[in-house]
Simulated scan of single mutants.
Amino acid sequence: MKKSHQKIKSKQRLRFRPGVIFVLGLVFAGAGSSAWQLWKLHVSVEQQLAQLNQEKETLLQQQKSLHEEIAQLNTPSYIEQLAREQLGLVKHGEILISPKN
């Protein structure tokens, strides 16, 4: 009688109830959904990071060209050229000849 009683108990342990299967399904669905959302977030962050790195490179190149322009603007020969072209200034002994408008 003991053996038959043990076989019945072991068979009962192996039986899954529909409620347990439903709850386990919900848990796996929730875990899968969370994993999918995390993956999508990761992809989005990677794309933003790549875009920002590209923008950073563009801004660094622009900064470099602006520093070069500042260095050029501070040279005496360029200042003299601007004074001649924009202000109409001349050196001592020179005569300014400008076209009529």
Rank of each mutant, 00 (worst) to 15 (best):
G93Y: 02
L87I: 08
A29L: 14
L14E: 11
N53P: 02
Q48T: 07
G19N: 12
E94P: 00
R84W: 00
V20D: 08
M1N: 11
G30W: 07
W36M: 14
S34K: 10
L52N: 12
A35H: 04
R17E: 10
Q12Y: 07
H67F: 03
L60H: 02
Q54H: 04
A29D: 06
P76C: 06
W36P: 00
T58I: 10
E80Q: 13
K11W: 07
P18R: 02
S4K: 05
L59K: 04
Q86P: 00
E94Y: 02
Y78S: 04
I70N: 08
V27Y: 05
H67S: 06
A31D: 07
Q47M: 10
S77P: 00
F16D: 09
Q37R: 14
G30Q: 04
Q48L: 13
E55I: 03
H92W: 10
L38I: 10
I79E: 14
I21G: 01
H92I: 14
L89A: 15
K2V: 03
Q62I: 14
Q63E: 07
K91C: 04
G25R: 02
S65M: 10
K91Q: 15
K100C: 08
Q72C: 03
I95R: 06
T58L: 11
Q47W: 02
R84L: 08
I79V: 15
P76N: 10
R17D: 07
E68T: 00
K2L: 09
Q61W: 00
Q81F: 13
K91H: 14
F16A: 15
G93V: 02
N101Y: 07
G25A: 04
Q48G: 06
S98Y: 01
A31V: 15
K64Q: 13
G25F: 02
L89C: 09
E85V: 08
E68F: 01
T75R: 03
L59R: 00
Q63C: 06
L82K: 11
I21S: 04
T58V: 12
A35C: 05
Q51T: 12
S77V: 08
V45G: 02
S98R: 13
Q54E: 15
A35F: 06
S4N: 10
E68N: 09
I21H: 01
I95L: 13
N101F: 02
Q6M: 10
S77H: 12
H5I: 05
A35N: 06
V23P: 00
K9N: 11
S4H: 11
N74Q: 12
W36I: 03
L89H: 13
G32Q: 03
P76K: 11
P76G: 04
Q47T: 14
S34Y: 14
M1K: 08
K91W: 02
V45C: 12
Q47C: 06
G88V: 01
V43K: 15
L73D: 13
Q81Y: 14
Q51E: 14
K2M: 05
K3P: 02
K7V: 03
G19Q: 10
L59A: 13
L82Y: 00
E85Q: 13
L49V: 13
Y78F: 12
A83E: 11
Q12D: 08
K100D: 12
I70G: 01
L52W: 02
E80N: 14
Q62P: 01
R15S: 08
Q6W: 00
G30Y: 01
G19C: 09
K40F: 11
H92N: 14
Y78V: 07
Q54F: 01
E55H: 03
H67W: 05
R17Y: 09
